[in-house]
Computed example of a mutant assay.
Amino acid sequence: MRNLGISVYPNYSTVKDDKKYIKLANKYGFRRVFTCLLSVEGNTDQILMNFKGTIGYAKQLGMEVICDINPRVLRKLGILYDDLSFFHDLGVDGIRLDLGFTGNEESMMTFNPYGLTIEINMSNSTKYLENILSFQPNRNKLTGCHNFYPHRYSGLSYDFFVECSKKFKKHGLRTAAFVSSNAATFGPWPVVEGLPTLEMHRELPIDVQAKHMFATGLVDDVIIGNAYASEEEIRLLSEINRNKVTFNIEVFDTTSDLERKIIFDELHFYRGDVSDYMIRSTQSRVKYRNKSFPPHNTIDIKRGDIIIDNDLYKQYAGELQIALKDMKNSGKTNVAGRIREEEIFLIDCLKPWDKFAFSEWR
């Protein structure tokens, strides 16, 4: 199962506001809550009491809560790696190690008597994970989660993100990463210029960020890094198909009812013999081979266009394609619609035999 999550920072907010946010997210099917002890300063007892109130409410709603820590925080709170009773008492389901130990400690922590999940930092290119695995951890209690980056231009490059993530998926471990709300105003640190994992996501609409994360096939859980996202953003995330790339598209006025039916009602998959110029979904031409597809809107084709071959293309009539490149139109292809501009890059995530769908963007 792929989950959605939010982040709360009780040392920068109130229990009342956090509960309101958690309730909203839960209403839309969010299942994870991330929180952070890294930036705890001031009256520690009061802050921890606020944490406990917030965490307890999320647990009442059946949400999973993971708390971000590092060895410095453990020392400050007087906690040893082999006694995690503090976090059990706090009420969390697991702890995320922003900075880790030597590998053996992490392995031992996965056997804690409370069943706490140990989540490790995915955003590094070292042999950290392999080292932990060499100490034979309880893999059922070991997961990974990327960092987020409040400083503009400091987020991960896409290639580095893929490199790091593949290490975890290779071993079958659950993974998570962060997207950034454009409505949120704070995070765990004073500087907040968004809180994405990937730098390329910083200015994108939040639903496009999440679609991309799921489309990579490398992320199981997508968490909003900053607080508080708007209800509209949360709703948009809740409506995403987490298992199949679904493009928001504009359908042109000239597009026929039959073409609309092909676009929205048929199951599309990326034909296995790959072209540099288009993604081909060919079953519609078989199913509707006895139907007519009169030529219309045969303008030149742009990358991101949804195109359907017309009657002039004979046996290809009714075949749907997504344009990967700009192309001259011979007059045999109808341009039926266009992918939302911010989502066009997602077509590069599709692989042969991947399934995909469309939703009308208004």
Score class of each variant (00 low, 15 high):
Asn182Lys: 15
Ile279Thr: 09
Thr197Asp: 06
Glu203Lys: 09
Met278Cys: 13
Ile224Pro: 02
Thr246Pro: 01
Gly217Gln: 00
Met278Glu: 10
Asn182Val: 08
Val191Lys: 05
Val222Cys: 06
Val191Ala: 03
Asp273Met: 12
Ser181Thr: 09
Ala227Leu: 09
Pro188Ile: 08
Glu232Met: 04
Phe252Ile: 07
Arg202Thr: 01
Phe168Thr: 10
Arg174Gly: 08
Ala177Cys: 14
Asp265Ser: 14
Glu193Trp: 00
Asp221Ser: 07
Ile206Met: 08
Ala184His: 02
Ser181Cys: 05
Ile240Leu: 07
Arg242Leu: 15
Asn241Val: 03
Lys244Val: 11
Lys170Arg: 12
Ala210Arg: 02
Asn248Tyr: 06
Thr216His: 15
Ala210Ser: 15
Leu195Thr: 00
Phe214Ala: 03
Ala184Gln: 10
Arg260Val: 08
Arg260Trp: 06
Lys169Met: 09
Thr216Asn: 06
Ala210Trp: 05
Ile240Trp: 06
Ala177Gln: 02
Met278Ala: 11
Phe264Asn: 11
Asn248Glu: 10
Leu218Ile: 04
Phe168Lys: 00
Arg242Ser: 12
Gly187Arg: 00
Ile206Phe: 02
Pro205Trp: 06
Ala215Glu: 09
Gly194Glu: 05
Ala227Arg: 13
His212Pro: 03
Val245Ser: 02
Asp276Gln: 14
Ile249Ser: 00
Ile224Asn: 08
Glu199Cys: 11
Phe269Met: 11
Met213Ile: 02
Asp276Ser: 14
Ser238Met: 07
Gly225Lys: 06
Glu266Gln: 05
Met200Gly: 01
Lys244Arg: 13
Glu193Asp: 15
Asp276Gly: 13
Ser181Gln: 08
Arg242Gly: 11
Asn243Thr: 13
His212Asn: 14
Ala176Ile: 01
Arg271Gly: 14
Ala215Gln: 07
Glu239Ile: 02
Glu250His: 15
Ser256Gly: 03
Glu199Met: 08
Asp253Met: 11
Glu266Trp: 00
Asn226Val: 00
Val274Asn: 13
Glu232Arg: 03
Lys244Thr: 06
Gly225Arg: 12
Pro188Gln: 03
Arg235Val: 15
Trp189Gln: 09
Thr216Leu: 01
Asp207Arg: 06
Ala183Asp: 15
Gly217Arg: 02
Leu173Trp: 08
Asn243Lys: 15
Asp273Glu: 15
Thr254Met: 08
Trp189Tyr: 11
Met213Trp: 04
Ala210Cys: 09
Lys169Asp: 03
Phe264His: 12
Lys211Ala: 05
Val245Ile: 12
Thr255His: 04
Leu237Thr: 03
Thr255Ser: 04
Gly194Phe: 01
Phe269Asn: 13
Leu195Val: 04
Ile262Phe: 00
Asp276Asn: 14
Asn182Phe: 01
Lys170Val: 07
Gly225Met: 12
Ile262Gln: 07
Leu237Arg: 03
Ser275Pro: 11
Pro205Val: 01
Ile223Leu: 10
Tyr277His: 14
Glu232Lys: 05
Lys261Leu: 13
Ala183Asn: 14
Tyr270Gly: 07
Lys211Glu: 04
Ser275Cys: 14
Thr246Lys: 15
Met213Ser: 02
Asn241Leu: 00
Phe186Tyr: 09
Pro205Tyr: 01
Glu232Cys: 00
Gly187Tyr: 05
Ser275Lys: 14
Met213Asn: 09
Thr254Cys: 10
